[in-house]
Nucleic acid binder design. Structure first.
Lengths: 297, 297
DNA sequence: TATATTGTTGCCTTTAAAGCAATAGTGATT
DNA sequence: AATCACTATTGCTTTAAAGGCAACAATATA
């Protein structure tokens, strides 16, 4: 079809041949083949002039359009490979999504209007691993050959309480004293998180009596603000309350945590090879820049 | 492109290979070549499943369209200056199809016995725009470079009622009085059609209380004949009832309509280039002659 | 865990496309 | 009117692309 089209435009097999760096004989044969397969004569040839027949004219118009479409389609695919666009599927922990991610993504959308965001908030980690997500944000990472994990920020839990609570019930002198205090417990997919204390290499459960247990951080934080008990949650989840003074951090001589493994962190996960897809690269770079520099290391 | 398309549809290189009587290895190579030339991965392969990537999906849609165009173009050339024959796909609005088109097509079939009619009646316009139809009949048209629209007949709605109804409830003196009358409402895909009246450039809703609402014109007409209320429908849909005197038109000083846009008409649509295909030309010419001369301008 | 199916890859064969030289036809020039 | 210059075509050869086969690796199902 390209050959035919060029022959028509050049009005000559020889000229068209030059455009393709192909011998006229080959062009002649290809066009003849095309005519044979269509069962119609497209070109009226004389040794001196080549012009379209009636059907040829009709066919030429069609071909013109078709070639255009093909080129346009190829262009679309190519630009797709270079310009960040398309659907970007992000999966994140619920609390992190609500507090940190979603506000950031508004800015991201403004930067890359051609990217359609598809955000799933879930604390289940099953969503990754399959190919149904481009980027995942999780606390801790499943070590996998093909998956790259970037530490975004610290994810260790800190104990907090409202000034009112501390006034009423007293500030716990040390970690062990937590046992005597009302507890607001955060529940992960693996169950509620106890209060643990590392004292001289030994771990002790210092959980106090439970007032409430939930996987909804905001609700627990509200309860903590209202002085219902002591809460352990992540620094980033509590940041706004700490700033306003609604809650204050409790500091102890001995480390307090909710798990014995010390490397608690929020990780950004994506498939190594997918980093070359523009939309993924754009998102990874954006998130790393905004989250890693400001809050973490 | 054909290979790629088939692989997508079959969801398997092996299956697609069978369709072409070609080994899977060859298909695999061709598709790989295509991907290389586009510089993009079109298919996500695992030994067990083959599915489109995001770019792949976009490209597949384009390819689909392109292959269609090529096929149509070949058909145009091959059938050039032959007798009208083959499958002719017509899409029409339901009511128009029932009342006007289908009766006419019997005659058409007698004229061109070698044409196999494939008629789809639907009020959705989604069927158009695609290349899966040779001729479409719609009320109104989307202006398009390649699509030609011929006005077949007027499509404005007129109010009618049975003599008995008018006897019992009185003939409405003016358009405003319609509000007091029982209404039989025709429902289009965009919703029920209210009664509107243009009075000194102002549009007023003069809909009366609804007795029945339906997208089935015949059923509403029957109800109207039985004196259940006033019906607004197109002149061509009501023609037989008006002739028999079962229904009579209500005329008012001020224009009554079902939409504020005045250019209501039935259009015959077809792709400009396809007029060269004998079967299409035959049908367009036939329909225009039979419909445009008798009822319209 | 074993099995069957599928996509890919290396190697070879087949088929299509390209190149070359010769031929025949045609419009312009003399 | 005859010649000339140029062009499309055709037979033959070369080259490149596509296809087939067997072996292999991967994966979902039993």
């Amino acid at each position: 079809m390209r050959y035919f089209s060029k022959v028509v435009e050049a009005g000559s097999f020889t000229q068209a041949g030059k455009a393709f760096n192909v011998s006229p004989s080959s062009l002649s044969r290809r066009v003849a083949d095309l005519e044979k397969s269509l069962g119609a004569t497209l070109l009226k040839r004389s040794t001196r002039i080549v012009k379209l027949t009636e059907v040829g004219q009709i066919y030429y118009n069609d071909v013109q359009h078709i070639l255009n479409q093909i080129e346009q389609s190829e262009e679309t695919v190519r630009s797709y490979q270079t310009t960040p666009m398309g659907r970007l599927r992000i999966s994140s922990m619920v609390s992190f999504g609500d507090i940190v991610l979603l506000p950031l993504l508004d800015e991201f959308s403004a930067l890359y209007p051609e990217i359609v965001l598809d955000v799933s908030l879930s604390d289940e980690l099953s969503t990754l691993g399959r190919d149904d997500v481009d980027i995942a944000i999780r606390g801790g990472y499943a070590p996998n050959e093909r998956v790259l994990a970037i530490k975004l920020m610290d994810n260790s839990f800190i104990p907090v309480a409202s000034p009112r609570y501390l006034e009423t019930h007293g500030v716990p002198e040390n970690a062990m004293a937590l046992k005597q205090h009302a507890g607001l417990y955060f529940k992960t997919p693996t169950g509620p998180t106890p209060w643990l204390c590392n004292k001289n290499g030994q771990w002790h459960d210092v959980s106090g009596p439970a007032v409430a247990i939930s996987n909804n951080g905001a609700w627990l934080a509200k309860k903590a603000c209202e002085g219902e008990g002591i809460l352990m949650s992540t620094r980033w989840a509590l940041a706004s309350y700490l700033e306003l003074g609604q809650l204050q951090e409790l500091k102890f001589e001995h480390e307090v945590a909710i798990t014995q493994s010390s490397t608690m962190a929020v990780y950004l996960l994506y498939q190594k090879q997918r980093y070359f897809v523009p939309k993924v690269k754009a998102a990874v770079d954006f998130l790393v820049e905004r989250l890693q520099t400001t809050n973490a290391r």
